[in-house]
Amino acid sequence: MVLDFNTLYDIPRTIEKFFDEMWAPLEISQRRLAYPPMNVAEDDNNIYVVMELPGVDVKDLDLTIADKSLILKGERKSEDAEYIRQERPTGYFQRIINLNVDVDREKVSAKMKNGVLEIVLPKAEEIKPKKIQIES
């Protein structure tokens, strides 16, 4: 690292740093499968999709619902500056989520907070579990 000239000082930290860096690639490979990483959950009424999208402007995101799939497209932009180190990914990304169930398209909501995108997809009325009364 360019800013790091005085590596001879603070030996315990230097050793700790060495081990941290040894483990780092492993952590990254475990974390990054497809971009953006997402968590999906469901309950009886909704499907919940949560994605990590730090620094992506809402206007650079394109969220579409096609036939039983949710398509997210976007771009991560790079800064106009002289890079000394670059680890953050940039460029276009797209992810398609198969929903496998019918959703109520009109009621889908999405919000962005702290670089986290949360999408709530209400399931269509027809597929919700319904209790059937048995007459005796």
Partner: peptide, 16 residues
């Protein structure tokens, strides 16, 4: 990311 622009260095970190 570590960047250099004008009279400052910038450290930019992804922290979702």
């Amino acid at each position: 990311d570590i960047m250099h622009k004008d009279n400052s260095y910038y450290i930019v970190m992804d922290m979702p």
